[in-house]
Structure formats: structure tokens, C-alpha cells
Design a protein around this nucleic acid. Sequence first.
DNA 1: CAGTATTGACAATCTGTATTGTCAGATAAC
DNA 2: GTTATCTGACAATACAGATTGTCAATACTG
Lengths: 216, 216
Amino acid sequence: MASSRKARLYGGMDAEERRAERRLKLIDAAIEVYGEVGYRGATVKAICEAAELTERYFYESFANSEALLIAAYNHVVGHLHEEMAAAAAAGGDDSEARLRAALTLYFTRLKEHPKPARVFLLEISGISPAVDAVKLDALRVFSDILVPPARDPKGSDKGTAATLLSIGMVGAVISIALRWVSKHYPQPVEDVVVIAASFCRVALTEADRRQDLRLL
Amino acid sequence: MASSRKARLYGGMDAEERRAERRLKLIDAAIEVYGEVGYRGATVKAICEAAELTERYFYESFANSEALLIAAYNHVVGHLHEEMAAAAAAGGDDSEARLRAALTLYFTRLKEHPKPARVFLLEISGISPAVDAVKLDALRVFSDILVPPARDPKGSDKGTAATLLSIGMVGAVISIALRWVSKHYPQPVEDVVVIAASFCRVALTEADRRQDLRLL
DNA sequence: CAGTATTGACAATCTGTATTGTCAGATAAC
DNA sequence: GTTATCTGACAATACAGATTGTCAATACTG
């Protein structure tokens, strides 16, 4: 009775597990292929071949190419953000130290994994509104890790200067990363971190300055 | 004899002039259409209809959609950069004043012309290597207007920290612009300029600091 | 006005890829 | 070993848009 309701096992896995495994293989393959030819150049067929699966299984797990892109993006970025948050936390209370730690981890991973890097730096832009929304959300998380949002007693911050400061900061960091990656890492990680940090400091100190002004 | 070798006139224009006019109409139409549905959503047909021309004339002036995108981009950005350079020049020798002037002009134009803004902020990314190259070049010009490159006695700067500083600066400004435009201009131009300028100042002062170090 | 260059509308073709469907062979359950 | 399920290869279809081609209407020239 224990297994009576389970689907038939193949390779020791039930239907669910097999499906999950195929899904994962497709995501890995997608990252690989995007890294080679870009999202736009990646056909369903090519991704399936790289995953050693047939188109059938593509549509089993994803409604269309865009869905796979989003899944791949979240897969990559999810891991990265977790690690960055952990690194930042290890930096203690010093916001400067936290920043350094998070950025160092970020650029280190970028260098270790060029193909995933391409996925979320390059391939993710301007595909569709749905994809853009996913990206925007990720950038917000990224920003909050680098410079945690100020304790704001009264409600929301939307549309204020603080938001634009975050946006600018993230824009600077991403652009630097993009260039660094596309030029094949000409500078050592530490140097890039220093430069990126100098832009983050703008957001940090400007936000404080404004906070101070408000408190006067 | 004056006109003996000229092509037949239509509407008072010779063949060359008519062709140039159609080309321009296509560029204007493209900007319009890109602004509505984006580059990817823009079909040759739709652009031709907007231009009140038929597909035939599209291929008369452009080899393909991408060529038109590049032409439209250069059209928009060329003007903008000229104006920015002029504004900066009017700011005199004070690099801070020049920066303010150029940024103010930039964000003002962005607000006045949302559709062209879309073309070079949004539509231009990740189309193809050729388009990316055009964009990279434009960003370099943009950067040089905001913060003119330091007088560098010995040769090239490629791959150095100064380049990444420029890249970061431009990335910050563009990202801010993008957000501001896509949220329909929630803040007044002056406020956005202040924020953008704070990121540019990083490039300005960091570059100086490094220059000083080198001179010690 | 007659004749030709030019134009505009639209049909025809071409290409590439997504998506669905078929079927024979492989694998596990009993 | 027999049967039901699952898998892999690949064919059939669908579709969209780019690119080229046709032809009659129009605008100019002399």
C-alpha cells in the first residue's frame, strides 16, 4: 500500500521525480546554450539536444521559451543572492564591510561562471514585459543586499530619491560587471570591487545625508 | 545642360532628394513605432504604413530592420550628443557646472520626447553584435561629454580603472533615466539631475584621486 | 498628347521555428 | 512473458514575418 498510489518507477524515480530531473536538465542546458548563442539564438531544439531530451519534454515543463528563460534566470539569481546575503551578513554591522563582502562574492562568482553570468547580465533585457518584471524584482533584491533600505518609519518610499539612488547604484554595478565579463576579466576581482563599491557608497552616503536633512 | 543629367523631377525633387526624404520618413516612422510597440514588435509593414510608404522603399534605403534601427538610433543620439556637448561647453571651465548643464539638457530632452527616449534607452540593447557596437560607441561619447577624459600623457587607457569608472557612471545615469522615463517622470528634472550628478562625481573625483596617486 | 519614369497596392514566395502528433522500441510491473 | 507505461526519434502542421515580384495608376517630360 505504501507505493500503491505512486506512479510506476523508472530508474528508481517516480513520475514526479523524473519530471523534476528533466526540468533541471533543461534549465542547465538552457544556461549552457544561452551562454553560447544568446537567448535569441537559442532554439527549443538546440536546448533539448543539449539536455539530451526531446521537444516533448520541453513542453512538459515549460509553456514556451520565455518560461524557460525566466526559470533559468531565477535559478541562477536565486543562488547568487542567497550567497551574497550570507556574505553580507558575515560582514557584521559595518555597512562598508558588508558591501565589500557582497560585491567580492558577486564578482568572484561572475568570474567563475561566465555562462550563467551572461544569462542574467545580458540575455535578460528587453525580451518581454513579463521577463522585465522578473528582472526588476531581482534588481531590487540585489540592491537591498548591497545597501539595505533605510529604516523608514512612515510608510513607503516609492518614487522618492532613495529609489533612484538604488537604481543608479545597481545600474553602475551591473554595467561594470557587464564590461568586465565581456572583456574577459582584465582586472583582478579586488580592483573591480573597489570601483563598484565607490558607486555604492554614493547611495549609502546620499541616503544618509537626506535622512539627516529630514531629521533637522 | 544644368539639369540634363539629373533624373526626372517629382514634386520638385530629383531622385536623390526623394530618396533621402523617404529615408527620413522611415526613420521618423520607426521611432514612432518603436515607441509604441518596441523594436521587436515592430514589423517592416507597420513602419512602412506609419511612414506612408510601401515595403519597396524600405529596402531601397535599408538592407534590413536592423539597419533601420541603427540609423534611427544614430539619428536620435547624434542630435542629443550635439546638444549636450554645446550645453557642457556653455558651462565654462567648471567641470561641475558643465556636468550639471549636460545632464539637465539630457533629462529635459528625455521628458520632452518619450518615444525617441525609448529607442535609445530600451530598444537598443541585445539585438545583435552590430547594434551593440553602435551602442557602445555612443555610450563612450556620452561619457566623454559628461566627464571629459583626463589628459593622459602616455598613450591609451584601455582596460584601466578609468574605463570602468566611466562605464559605471554611464550605467548609473542610464538606469536612472530608464526608471524615470518608464515611471512617467515622477520627479522634476532638477531632482533627477542632482541624483545623477552624484554618481558622475564619483567618476570625476576617483579619477582625480588616482591621477594624484600616480603623480606622487 | 504620347511615352516613360516612378509610385503604390498587393500578391507570391521563402525561410525558420514553434508546437503538435505518430509510432516503434524500451522498461518496469506482475 | 505479457501487458501497460514511458521514452526517443522524427514527421506533419502551423504561423509569422521578411523579401521579392507583378501590374496598373499616376506624375512628369517634351
